[in-house]
Design a protein around this nucleic acid. Structure first.
Lengths: 270, 270
DNA sequence: CAAGTCTCCTTATGCCGTAAACTAGCGTTC
DNA sequence: GAACGCTAGTTTACGGCATAAGGAGACTTG
């Protein structure tokens, strides 16, 4: 499921996203509301955290609140709008974490940013399924973006390169953590552990492609060379691999960015 | 929608994926089949290409073939298995493109690989929604992996670093092209063009957050500095941005990889 | 021709988002 | 204090989804 933000009434959604210190409390006629937008959003986040985006339904959220599904529509225009609100609500957590790190040296700060994003994405894997094609444009997402942009700006990159470096870092992390998150979700969704699954599949692979090693010599040699070895039996292999790849990729990417930095400032990074 | 591969009967799925030069044509009793796995897979790919993964339903595929949805289950165990087959079938196209480029100098070859993956992903955006947590393990996916692994191996990286460099490159491209693909899908799904959408949203943003520039000074300064300018009015902004970010990110990442190369081989890359 | 097997169909179950119409609670205004 | 009109929440219903179950007819093999 991929979700596009902001299809509903822009005025309404944006007002909800940026609400906050609204006093706005003149009592309305009609029965006292028993729910609230915040309560619904919290509950929806809990459902999505526990059972994944696929299990997030209006009925599921309502059931937790002891209401009918339709009652949610009093507070929220559609499921899409609810997801926008969930997204930005969750990002507040990441923003708090990330804003504390901007004062460090830029490479340290950028790495910390990436690792916060990593852990956040594993805590809230459903956020990875909210499309960036129509960004949510909520305040907390902006806080997270501002934090990394600030770090890269201070490092001495120009506006366009801040944007480019930002996008590269963000997508590298997002892509890799997705694999890690999906590994966990796949376990939860299918009930089959990774090694168990791999065991069954690789047996079949051998049977069906006995000439694998000659058809794919480099991959075979890599396997032989221990590239896909499981160092730590306690942790699923895919999560290890993704994390190691992140360390490598972040290192290499930051090196490349640093080179551009010294190149444009004549060897004098500020 | 995120799809996990390989939940069905491993034997059955793997046999279908790696079938190919099967003669295996002793006539069976019962009525002549009017469909075939290949026909169904082709049709399903066409549906997904045209209308996206969300519109891919057993009913939609069957309707194109003038059959009932249930008739497909004679050939394919489940929708998940069908997606596995679609995925590897599509990858054949990428494999053909990518295998022709391995002989070039490693940086050129790696860049070409990335760009083939980019264009392929835009032609078949639904492939971006197939999870890698439980890889499909089809022959054509392996061909694509082998091609880049070969290039990186020849460049002089060790097995683990081939894996790390591979994962970094692959996820950088996949993450960025996803934005590009989703921009197109969002247009098709919502009917609202990007600039139109942005126009409405940014007006609301100004209204609801008049203090934006002081709250997010770096982002505001970047906008001021032209970091988010649309160079080419004919192309949607997000696609331009994603492509430029890819150029930057690939360059930086390959620089970083090259540094590791010369470091480990004492300045003598093979 | 009979038996066995295979393709394809219809029907049904239990999910989903949400439209529509309704009931009942409550502040406001005469 | 009665009437009005807004509002929170309900029930019911529609059209979508994957797929389980079972049945009708077509075809090959004995």
């Amino acid at each position: 499921m991929v979700v596009y933000a902001g299809q509903g009434d822009a005025r309404r959604s944006m007002a909800l996203l940026w609400r906050g210190e609204r006093p706005d409390e003149r009592p309305a006629p009609g029965p006292k509301p028993e729910l609230s937008v915040d309560l619904i959003v919290d509950t929806a986040v809990a459902v999505a955290d526990e059972h994944g985006m696929a299990a997030l339904s209006m009925r599921a959220v309502a059931e937790r609140l002891g209401r009918s599904a339709m009652s949610l529509y009093t507070y929220v225009a559609s499921k899409n709008e609810l997801i926008d609100l969930m997204y930005d609500h969750a990002f507040a957590e990441l923003a708090d974490a990330v804003e504390g790190e901007t004062e460090r040296p830029w490479r340290t700060a950028a790495t910390a940013w990436a690792e916060h994003l990593w852990r956040f994405s594993l805590r809230h894997p459903w956020t990875l399924q909210v499309s960036h094609a129509r960004p949510v444009l909520g305040p907390h997402e902006y806080r997270v973006f501002e934090a990394l942009a600030l770090v890269l700006d201070r490092a001495g990159l120009g506006p366009s390169d801040v944007r480019n470096a930002f996008g590269s870092l963000f997508n590298l992390v997002r892509g890799l953590v997705r694999t890690s998150a999906e590994a966990r979700q796949a376990l939860a969704a299918t009930g089959t552990a990774e090694d168990e699954w791999w065991h069954a599949r690789s047996a079949q692979l051998e049977e069906v492609a006995p000439d694998f090693d000659t058809r794919f010599p480099t991959l075979a040699a890599m396997a032989e060379g221990g590239a896909f070895a499981n160092d730590d039996e306690d942790q699923p292999y895919l999560e290890q691999e993704a994390w190691q790849t992140l360390r490598f990729g972040m290192g290499a990417l930051l090196d490349g960015i640093e080179r551009r930095l010294t190149a444009t400032t004549d060897g004098q990074p500020r």
